[in-house]
Design a protein around this nucleic acid. Structure first.
Length: 440
RNA sequence: GGCGGCGUGGCCGAGUGGCUUAGGCAAGGGACUGCAAAUCCCUGUACAGCGGUUCGAUUCCGCUCGCCGCCUCCA
């Protein structure tokens, strides 16, 4: 049994599967209008760890994560830079996937795009109007929130306690400030599609409703994303689905944000680090380890200090992997069970990581099954340890040989000089009774 | 104003009504090594503050202080 936090009930509860043994997951993906930042990295690592772990558990996972390829910020950028929206999307989506590849994030099974679903969205909006949940105005079609009993499930507070923020757009045509756009009628310079309400484009929330139901079917198992999307985005997705007569996601799991000096990392606060920059300076696996060391519901700080901390931990794992690369043993069932107990219980990755490090310690003390266990468990969460010896260039190999010769000859001054040179060029030099090994 | 979360040892970060009270990083001491590296051994006695419940609270309750998130685009 897998237990996960469920935002709708506010509790950790069993992940019930519509079809036993199969898990259908929809995860809100990126809007490629700019480079991804470190928080997006956490976001994809969250679904990747979930995805990999569930499959490791023997479950058949279908993961859908969309790309929003038509949206205000994309349009703004395309106009500012005098190029098409498709061009903007192509550039930043490519950067997104390349960063995810570097992070070792597995591709979702389906990556639907909003622009491929416009026709289905139009039909869905039409259905909502027909059922009395939506109305047309001079500038679009809106969902009438008051018509849907139960709105506020994910916000976990009644509709009338929500406060109209100072920056909510005033729109005289809308019946209530919290009604939200299903369809936006065309403005000059924007890409448009035909609809019964004239040319225009879909609102943001409708795509996820339509694509998730289309690819995963009614009553799919799990909907995930960062917790900043809980309200209003997910609330609205759900309202649309329910309003049109569909059973929507049965379980909602949201992860916390990455922070910088205690504040949420975000584009608008301008306190973000581009994910690509982080990956240029930090081992991607260290970032994965950093995310695993905090529970997914807890925010954590990304800073040079916390990253360096994680890299040191990773070094210990890699040192372990080099030493035990060829261990023939099979994993220890009791340790695997302990790990599974933590992971099954709401993905308690900090405890799971502790189990891994305990096994590393046991291995160094001679427990071969513990060594095999480490490889098994790091694999389950997508941490790829460096078992294979690293390629060493010819010149470095020559130096290593020369150094060992000098040590043989007890010419330690010369050996130390060579070592110093290797170290200064970034090599970690390990000399043992059987000779010297270098790695980076 | 509403809703929610958090405050743990030098740092990150789990957890628990009392039991030998995670794990990582860093630090100090020791072992091993020609020296290093890797590894091993040892050391730290923490739970914001004030009350309350209790035989006993870091863990439960209340209050205070501080911090953060959502209610607006946002992973």
């Amino acid at each position: 049994m897998i237990r996960l936090h469920d935002t709708a009930s506010g509790q950790v509860r069993e992940l019930e599967m519509r079809d036993p043994g199969k898990v259908s997951i929809y995860h809100c993906g990126p809007t490629p209008y700019d480079v991804p930042h470190v928080g997006h990295g956490r976001n994809t690592l969250f679904y990747d760890v979930l995805h990999r772990y569930l499959e490791w558990r023997g479950l058949d996972v279908t993961l859908v994560s969309n790309v929003t390829d038509i949206e205000d910020k994309i349009i703004r950028r395309s106009i500012a830079e005098g190029r098409s929206c498709a061009d903007v999307v192509a550039e930043f989506e490519a950067i997104h996937w390349s960063a995810m590849d570097r992070l070792g994030v597995l591709r979702p099974d389906h990556v639907p795009k909003a622009t491929q679903y416009v026709e289905k969205m139009v039909a869905f909006i039409d259905e909502l109007i027909g059922r009395g949940h939506a109305y047309e105005t001079s500038d679009g079609v809106y969902f009438e929130v008051r018509t849907l009993p139960g709105y506020g499930l994910l916000a976990r507070q009644p509709l009338d306690s929500l406060r109209a923020g100072a920056r909510v757009e005033i729109d005289e045509d809308k019946r209530e400030w919290f009604d939200f756009a299903l369809w936006k009628k065309a403005k000059p310079g924007e890409p448009t599609w035909e609809s019964p309400w004239g040319p225009g484009r879909p609102g943001w929330h409708i795509e996820c409703t339509v694509m998730s139901l289309d690819l995963l079917g009614d009553g799919f198992d799990l909907h995930t994303a960062g917790d900043d999307l809980t309200f209003p985005h997910h609330e609205n997705e759900r309202a649309q689905a329910v309003g049109a007569g569909h059973a929507f996601s049965r379980h909602w799991t949201h992860h916390a944000m990455v922070e910088v000096e205690g504040q949420k990392m975000s584009k608008s606060l301008r306190n973000f680090t581009a994910l690509t920059d982080l990956l240029d300076h930090t081992d991607a696996r260290a970032y994965r380890l950093l995310t695993l060391r905090a529970h997914y519901k807890s925010p954590f700080d990304v800073s040079p200090d916390t990253l360096a901390d994680a890299e040191s931990g990773l070094d210990r794992l890699d040192a372990f992997a080099r030493r035990f690369a060829d261990v023939p043993a099979i994993p220890d069932p009791a340790t695997v069970e302990k790990f599974r107990g933590f992971m099954d219980d709401d993905l308690k990755t900090p405890q799971a990581v502790a189990v891994i490090f305990d096994a590393v310690n046991a291995a160094h003390k001679g427990d071969e099954r513990a060594a095999a266990t480490v490889f098994e468990l790091t694999g389950a969460v997508g941490l790829d340890l460096k078992r294979a010896p690293q390629a060493v260039d010819a010149e470095t190999q020559r130096q290593v040989a020369e150094m060992d010769d000098a040590r043989q000859a007890r010419d330690f001054a010369r050996a130390d000089a060579i070592r110093a040179d290797l170290v200064s060029r970034g090599w970690v030099v390990e000399s043992g009774p059987s000779g010297t090994v270098v790695h980076r």
